[in-house]
C-alpha cells in the first residue's frame, strides 16, 4: 500500500479509536494486578510489580464464584430460550402473511421503547406477589422480554434475505415447513442467529438494574456483586477491577467464538 496522507490520517484515526476503546480495558486489567497504593498513585504508575492478591481474594470469596455461576446460568438460559423462541417467530414473520403481521412486528420492537426503570417497581411487586424474588427464573423471564424482540428483529431481517426460491424448491422436494426451517433457514440464517445470540448474552450478562432489584442473596449476578464492593469507607479498587476482569472474560470468549459469524451477519446486505 502506498503511504499517502489519506492513509496516514486513516491510520491515525483508527489508532485513536482503538486507544479510546481499549484503554479502559487496559486500565481495568492492569489495576487488577496492582496494589491499592499503586492504583491510587498520582501520577499513575506505569511500571509495577504485579500481584495476584486481588484474584486470590475474590476466588476465595464464594460470593464472587457463585455470582459468576449465577450470571452464566441466567445468561445462557436467556440466550438459549430467546433463540429457541425467537428464530421460529422470525421465520413466520419473514415468510408468512397473516392478519396483524405488521402490528405484531411493531409491537415486538415497541417493547424496547420503554425505559427499563419505569417497569422496575411494577416488576418487583409482581415478583414479590408471585414469590419469585431472588430466583434464577425471574431474571431469565425479565431478560427474555428484553432479548426476544432483538432476536426476532435480527433473525427476521436475516431470513428475509434468503431467496424465496430456495424454500419453494424445498417444498417441491417434499420438505414440510419444519424441515424447511431446520434444513434451509437455520443453516443459512446462522450469521443473524449468532449476532442476536451474542447481543442477548451480553445484555443478560451485563444487566445491573433488574438484577439489583430482584435478587437478594442466593441469585446475585456478577455485576451486582462487583458493585456490592463499593460500600464502606474505602473502595477496594483492586478487588473490583479483578472482579470486572473475571466478568468480562466469558463474554470475550463467547464473542471470539461467534465473531466469524457475527462479522458476516453485520455486513450482510451491505454488498448486495
Amino acid at each position: 500500500m502506498r503511504l499517502s496522507s489519506g492513509n496516514i490520517l486513516h491510520a491515525l484515526g483508527l489508532t485513536a479509536v482503538i486507544l479510546f476503546t481499549l484503554f479502559p480495558f487496559y486500565w481495568m486489567v492492569s489495576a487488577s494486578f496492582k496494589t491499592q497504593a499503586d492504583i491510587l498513585a498520582s501520577p499513575p504508575v506505569w511500571l509495577f510489580t504485579p500481584t495476584l492478591d486481588h484474584y486470590r481474594e475474590i476466588f476465595a470469596d464464594s460470593k464472587v464464584i457463585g455470582a459468576v455461576g449465577n450470571s452464566l446460568i441466567i445468561a445462557t438460559a436467556t440466550t438459549a430460550l430467546a433463540v429457541l423462541l425467537g428464530a421460529p417467530a422470525a421465520f413466520a414473520l419473514a415468510r408468512y402473511d397473516f392478519r396483524g403481521k405488521s402490528d405484531l412486528w411493531f409491537w415486538f420492537i415497541s417493547n424496547r421503547m420503554t425505559s427499563p426503570i419505569v417497569l422496575a417497581l411494577p416488576v418487583y411487586i409482581l415478583a414479590l406477589q408471585l414469590k419469585m424474588l431472588d430466583t434464577h427464573l425471574v431474571l431469565i423471564l425479565i431478560y427474555l422480554t428484553f432479548n426476544l424482540p432483538i432476536v426476532v428483529w435480527i433473525c427476521t431481517d436475516q431470513f428475509k434475505s434468503i431467496p424465496p426460491d430456495l424454500e419453494q424448491a424445498a417444498r417441491l422436494d417434499g420438505a414440510d415447513q419444519f424441515t424447511i426451517f431446520r434444513k434451509i433457514y437455520l443453516p443459512l440464517g446462522a450469521p443473524g442467529i449468532a449476532v442476536s445470540a451474542i447481543f442477548s448474552f451480553i445484555f443478560s450478562w451485563n444487566e445491573l438494574l433488574y438484577a439489583l432489584v430482584l435478587t437478594r442473596r442466593d441469585v446475585q449476578t456478577a455485576p451486582v456483586v462487583a458493585t456490592s464492593f463499593m460500600s464502606g469507607y474505602e473502595l477496594p479498587w483492586g478487588k473490583i477491577m479483578a472482579t470486572g476482569t473475571v466478568i468480562v472474560l466469558p463474554v470475550t470468549i463467547f464473542a471470539l467464538i461467534v465473531s466469524r459469524h457475527m462479522v458476516r451477519g453485520l455486513t450482510m446486505g451491505a454488498t448486495k
Binding site: 426460491d165 430456495l166 424448491a169 417441491l172
Partner: peptide, 16 residues
C-alpha cells in the same frame, strides 16, 4: 406441491 410429482428448474437455479 410435493404430491404432484413434478419438479422444477428455477431461473435462479435455487440450489441450496
Amino acid at each position: 406441491p410435493a404430491k404432484r410429482e413434478v419438479s422444477m428448474v428455477f431461473q435462479s437455479y435455487a440450489l441450496y
